[in-house]
């Protein structure tokens, strides 16, 4: 069964140029037609295999920059080969693979795999409620590892200014549909005695990591679990063991007590978070495999969610 993947920010695809992206290791060309509808084609001309993405967007679709063959965004069919005589037709089998594409909340999604595209898009769960920070990058870490590290050590992948993310996570990851959710303690830097000395953490960092797909949510919460920052990170497998990242996030308006550094950062318009494209290999290698173990186990658990529910009376186990 296929699934939707976020491949780009909405604002990154505009005008008469296509955007080259990589999803599940495959190169795609994403573009809009004159009405703003979004399309995704295999980034490979079937004529001489050159990438389509550098070509211009024409009325009939995306035109190959090499010989001008043009491909319809919805079907992938080649509808124009320059220099053909008027009585010549493009053979019906001349086409590139086309992928269903859809847009929601500032994210462009592409459906990959078998089956009818699902009605719900991953990006639909994200709703900005403040000034957004957005970005995209290719991170120097493999996709599955990126998801695992988001559980084992998110401080290697993301930061919040003035916030120390601890590695004391609360309990074990809890299952929420097709995601695992884990909270960990965090404290304001330069406030109090440091993370080892606090009785109760003044902040939480909540990571929501998929078992399948690449939609990640990271939230910075107050001690009362009021959201301070929400980040939606879409990850997918890029080439050569790297990971494509696309993100949007925003700072919530809050009455929760904040550190002076946080208030200062807000006053000068500094981004409330940072996503690391360059990941410290030594820091990642030093992480013990801990909550991500549950993700790997859950991924291989073939039972249905209903079958996986264990009555609480039977939970005691060796």
């Amino acid at each position: 069964m296929g699934r939707w993947w976020v491949v780009a920010l909405s604002e990154a695809v505009h005008g008469d140029k296509a955007l080259a992206v990589t999803c599940e290791g495959e190169q795609l060309a994403v573009f809009r037609d004159g009405k703003g509808a979004v399309f995704a084609l295999e980034d490979r001309c079937p004529h001489r295999r050159v990438p389509l993405s550098p070509g211009p967007v024409k009325a009939g679709g995306l035109q190959c920059p090499y010989h001008g063959w043009t491909f319809d965004g919805a079907t992938g069919l080649c509808n124009d080969i320059p220099n053909l005589r008027r009585d010549e037709r493009v053979p019906a089998r001349y086409a590139v693979r086309a992928f269903p594409a859809a847009e929601a909340n500032g994210f462009i999604h592409v459906w990959r795999g078998a089956g009818t595209p699902a009605a719900v898009l991953p990006g639909a769960s994200y709703r900005a409620a403040g000034r957004e920070q957005t970005g995209s990058a290719v991170a120097n870490i493999a996709f599955e590892q990126y998801l695992d590290v988001m559980l084992d050590g998110p401080e290697c992948l993301v930061s919040f200014p003035g916030v120390h993310i601890t590695d004391f996570f609360l309990g074990d990851p809890r299952r929420d549909g097709e995601h695992l959710v884990l909270d960990r303690g965090a404290v304001w830097k330069c406030k109090g005695n440091g993370p080892a000395f606090v009785r109760d953490h003044s902040l939480w960092v909540r990571t929501r990591v998929p078992l399948r797909g690449g939609d990640i949510r990271v939230e910075l919460l107050s001690a009362d679990e009021e959201p301070l920052v929400t980040i939606f990170i879409a990850a997918s497998e890029n080439r050569r063991g790297t990971t494509s990242l696309v993100w949007r996030g925003f700072r919530h308006a809050t009455a929760a007590p904040l550190s002076w550094r946080w208030r200062m950062a807000r006053a000068i318009g500094r981004a409330p978070f940072a996503i690391f494209p360059h990941i410290d290999g030594a820091a990642v290698a030093a992480l013990e495999v801990a909550p991500s173990r549950d993700r790997r186990l859950a991924k291989t658990d073939a039972r249905t969610p209903a079958e996986r529910v264990v009555p609480v009376q039977e939970r005691c186990a060796v």
């Binding site: 609360l170 309990g171 074990d172 809890r174 009785r199 109760d200 009362d224 679990e225």
Partner: peptide, 19 residues
């Protein structure tokens, strides 16, 4: 928790991954 740590504001603790 220490009794002295608990006041009117709710404090979250975890036992065997339960809130």
């Amino acid at each position: 928790a220490y009794s002295a740590d608990i006041g009117e504001r709710a404090v979250r603790r975890i036992v065997h991954a339960q809130d």
